[in-house]
């Protein structure tokens, strides 16, 4: 008996110290298990099954094919997934780069402008935030109309402002890239701006005053006072933005015939490609394997991000 006393005591101490915390965490953890980790594990498992229309009724009892789906995607040059897949990868990476660069720079610039005494400042902030509350599928639908050759954007650019000699096709060819980037930025930069604005307001004024006394120029004040204070929030915004753009779907889906059409080499993203190849082809085993690969890709991206911003995320 004596041998059990020490571990029991340890458990009791542990329970006294952390028990309540674990009790509070438990519902959230169970919820995550049910709606997040469970389906995720199931999704990964589906990637090892020959789950297609003919075997759909068997669901998780569909024939187990091991790594066949992965071989099909990665090694079979004739795989249906290869049709347009490389274009989707290129466009998604470029899309993530351009959208996040524009979001972060525009957000930071405007947050700076609004972080000073300004007439009707509250009103400007609210107005700028408006696009953020528009659901992304509505954004895709509306911009889809606006980008038409005879749409309002071309009317403005050509008929009113005379900036272009003729009306271009925005929804066909390489310009499609512009047509998907701008609505995404239009909808997402206000959130970046508000987050930066909140972060800017936490920078102690004394730091600026001290820098001024030391003769720092406005650029030096930004470079050596503001930016270090903004790096943690930039890290979070970047992660949020990168994942958001990697998994972007609604705007492209709605803009090109509500999923009926093919957005083209410069409009198709990883998620629209995956959707078409899974639900259009009714091959859920392949689709699940591809999803798992994308998840690993995103995980790699997060690890890289973590390495870059590790220092900024440590509590000071």
């Amino acid at each position: 008996m004596g041998g059990l006393e020490a571990p029991l005591l340890l458990m009791r101490t542990f329970w006294r110290k952390y028990g309540l915390a674990y009790l509070f965490i438990a519902p959230a953890f169970l919820g995550m298990l049910l709606v997040h980790y469970g389906p995720m594990v199931q999704g990964v498992y589906m990637g090892f099954l020959d789950l297609r229309l003919q075997t759909l009724r068997l669901y998780l009892q569909a024939p187990f094919v091991g790594l066949e789906n992965y071989r099909e995607i990665l090694l079979n040059p004739e795989s249906t997934f290869r049709a347009g897949f490389l274009y989707a990868v290129r466009t998604t990476l470029l899309y993530a780069l351009v959208v996040n660069t524009l979001n972060l720079s525009l957000g930071l610039l405007v947050a700076h402008l609004l972080n000073r005494p300004l007439f009707l400042r509250g009103l400007w902030r609210s107005l700028i935030l408006l696009p953020w509350v528009v659901p992304s599928y509505v954004v895709g639908l509306l911009w889809g109309f606006m980008w038409l050759k005879e749409g309002v954007i071309n009317h403005l650019l050509v008929d009113v402002l005379g900036l272009l000699p003729q009306k271009p096709h925005w929804l066909i060819g390489p310009l499609t890239f512009v047509a998907i980037v701008l609505p995404t930025v239009w909808r997402s930069w206000p959130f970046v701006m508000v987050t930066y604005l909140a972060a800017l307001q936490t920078v102690p004024q004394e730091l600026y005053e001290a820098a001024k006394v030391d003769g720092a120029t406005p650029w030096q004040r930004f470079r050596f006072v503001t930016w270090p204070m903004l790096r943690p929030v930039t890290a979070v915004l970047l992660l949020y933005g990168l994942l958001g753009t990697m998994y972007s779907f609604n705007i492209v889906y709605m803009m090109f015939g509500h999923g009926a059409g093919y957005p083209g080499e410069w409009g198709d993203l990883l998620m629209t490609n995956l959707f078409r190849n899974t639900f259009g082809m009714w091959n859920f085993g392949l689709g699940a394997a591809a999803s798992t690969l994308y998840m690993l890709l995103s995980l790699g991206l997060i690890l890289f991000w973590y390495r870059v911003f590790r220092e900024d995320l440590r509590a000071r």
Binding site: L53, I172, Y262, G264, R276, M281, W282
Partner: peptide, 23 residues
Amino acid sequence: AGWGGVENLAVQHIGMAWDLVAQ
């Protein structure tokens, strides 16, 4: 049984041909 996939792929590639037409 697999017509959905056939139509999907045909639509995608004829769609790409429409892109060429527009250009």
